[in-house]
Computed example of a mutant assay.
Amino acid sequence: MAAVVRHRIEQYQPVPMPWALDLVNADGREPAEVCALRRSVAHELIQQWVEAGTFNHDSAWDMLGGWTGRRYRRNAGDAEGALRSAGRPALLDSGDFVWLYRLATDATTGGRGEMAEAFAVAAATVFDLADDESATLVLEDRTHRVWKHVSWWFDPVPLDSEVARCPAPGLMETSKPGRNTSDACTEEVPR
């Protein structure tokens, strides 16, 4: 399956989310078997890209985006119909961070530097600073490969800097008086 998915991604073709990777139970939770299968496909994709020498940041992002809602389906789920489509838009998400972090650790320990770096890059793409477990994990070991890809989240911002004065993109509105959207970060806005 990973070879087909990889080929479609590399050819810039839409990748339908396979039904078997997009199931949740009646409570809306992903069953362990589905999670294991989904992660197995992600692991194999990363491994194939690394072996081909083509893994990069774009590869990691391709596991997050570009998946279409049309799903191939062999059957209607389990006999009781307890499993249903989750509507998953991506192969990996922030819930996979700890798994990817540990894969990077294991690959480093095993002397597989390229795989370790690929897992670290993939982990960084799904990192969610709001998740306490993920944030704690990266803060506790700043020598881990993942750290260099997420450390910017933790960089201090001087309060008198241009970055601190510049509002987040999309917050500037032309309808508000005193706002200059053409050069939002360099013009002082009266408060």
Score class of each variant (00 low, 15 high):
Met1Gln: 14
Val5Met: 08
Val5Cys: 04
Val5Ile: 15
His7Lys: 14
Ile9Phe: 07
Glu10Gln: 12
Gln13Ile: 05
Pro14Asp: 12
Met17Phe: 02
Val24Glu: 07
Ala26Pro: 09
Ala26Leu: 12
Glu30Thr: 11
Glu30Gly: 03
Val34Ala: 08
Val34Pro: 07
Val41Gly: 03
Gln48Phe: 04
Gln48His: 11
Ala52Pro: 03
Ala52Cys: 02
Ala52Glu: 03
Thr54Asp: 15
His57Trp: 05
Thr68His: 02
Arg73Gly: 11
Gly77His: 01
Ala79Leu: 02
Ala79Arg: 01
Ser85Leu: 10
Ala86Glu: 02
Leu92Thr: 04
Leu92Ala: 03
Leu100Trp: 01
Tyr101Val: 03
Leu103Met: 14
Leu103Ile: 12
Thr108Leu: 11
Gly110Leu: 11
Arg112Ala: 14
Met115Ile: 01
Ala118Thr: 02
Ala123Tyr: 10
Ala124Leu: 08
Asp128Lys: 02
Asp132Trp: 02
Glu133Cys: 11
Glu133Ala: 12
Ala135Glu: 06
His144Asn: 05
His149Gln: 03
His149Phe: 11
Pro158Thr: 07
Leu159Phe: 06
Glu162Pro: 06
Arg165Trp: 08
Gly170Val: 01
Leu171Ser: 08
Leu171Trp: 13
Met172Cys: 10
Glu173Pro: 00
Glu173Thr: 08
Glu173Met: 13
Glu173Asp: 10
Arg179Pro: 15
Ser182Ile: 07
Cys185Glu: 03
Thr186Ser: 09
Glu187Ser: 09
